[in-house]
Nucleic acid binder design. Structure first.
Lengths: 191, 191
DNA sequence: ACCTGAACACCGTTCAAGT
DNA sequence: ACCTGAACACCGTTCAAGT
């Protein structure tokens, strides 16, 4: 009730996605319902289905939109360590901007059509790092799960809890330690 | 309708949790509804609420139940590398047994009251590995997110996709590479 | 104590109808 | 083409009532 279904403009997909993302950021993916979204847009719930196939499709749309903002490091001569670091930080910054959505992305991998560009870039960096070809696929996947696992934990708020007698530690510092550990591991395998 | 609400035995919490877990394993957390669970137990939906506060509380119960099965490596003299490896594999094997539930656990960390025992064991191993005290908390968290990130990706089915020209790679091998990489990274920091 | 039926306030989505 | 209202088949949960 109380959906005053009158508006001037004609309702675009962009508008729908943007509003959905705003609602997700504000209250989590679970708090987004087609009916509430419609109310927010001052539109009948069923109008949405004229622009979007289903709620799942809408979420997919929003996920892709956000994932597109990932800034991949260019293939200039930058040393592999710096490129790997840059990629890790870029990935993390996207998730930090929309933690609730990222929680959803991770547990619904089909929501993101695979970003082959990301894999290609990671591959290139690992080749530069001297990872032997037979271990390339494994290493690529391992690294991706490491970084996404960290970022995911951060989104879920696991990393912020109190520490032992050392007091609360800074999550930024933890991420740096994490990235350093990965780079050290990769460097060790390289003579 | 059609819930033939007659049964002999008196419905226990264990029975509820076990059935819930079975349904989650079969169809994912999303497919579990209080009403379907009640139907499966041949009971009125409202009877469940006499044993459980809410659906969230029920899921929490099930998560704790499963998490309790984690086999932590004992504090014998085993070298830290072996202990760390054992912990990683133990953690993974739990998730592998109930992937859908684990997907939920990860995105709802409040569903698992923190397993301080796990943290303690990990701490002990890292001390044995020679991680300096000021980096202990960071390293512990980084490692945890690495392993849980890997396991999570495996649960979500991200790691099974086709690889480049090398054909499909074995996920077990990838996990081994991942653990090796972590151990190499830790070893590098140790003189 | 333990269980139940009816009810409330929500969902996503279909479908026929309106402009 | 674009939007709408009513309706269907679901949810989780409350509450008063039954044994």
């Amino acid at each position: 009730m109380a959906v005053s279904a009158r508006r001037g403009e004609p309702l675009t997909l962009e508008e729908i996605c943007a509003t959905a993302l705003r609602m997700i950021d504000a209250g989590g993916v679970d708090s987004l319902s087609m009916r509430k979204l419609a109310a927010e847009l001052d539109v009948n719930p069923m109008s949405l289905y004229h622009h979007v196939d289903s709620k799942t499709a809408l979420l997919q749309q929003v996920c892709s939109m956000v994932a597109l903002r990932l800034r991949l490091p260019a293939d200039d001569g930058t040393p592999w360590r710096d490129q790997l670091r840059a990629l890790g930080y870029a990935y993390r910054s996207i998730a930090q901007r929309h933690p609730s959505l990222w929680l959803y992305v991770q547990s619904h991998p089909e929501a993101l059509k695979h970003d082959y560009l990301l894999w290609d870039v990671l591959n290139r960096i690992l080749v530069a790092a001297g990872v032997p070809p037979e271990r390339l696929a494994h290493t690529r996947k391992a690294l991706f799960t490491f970084v996404s696992g960290f970022v995911f934990a951060e989104c879920a708020g696991i990393l912020a809890e109190q520490d032992g007698p050392g007091g609360a530690a800074d999550v930024d510092d933890t991420f740096e330690v994490a990235v350093d550990l990965i780079i050290a591991g990769l460097s060790a395998a390289r003579p």
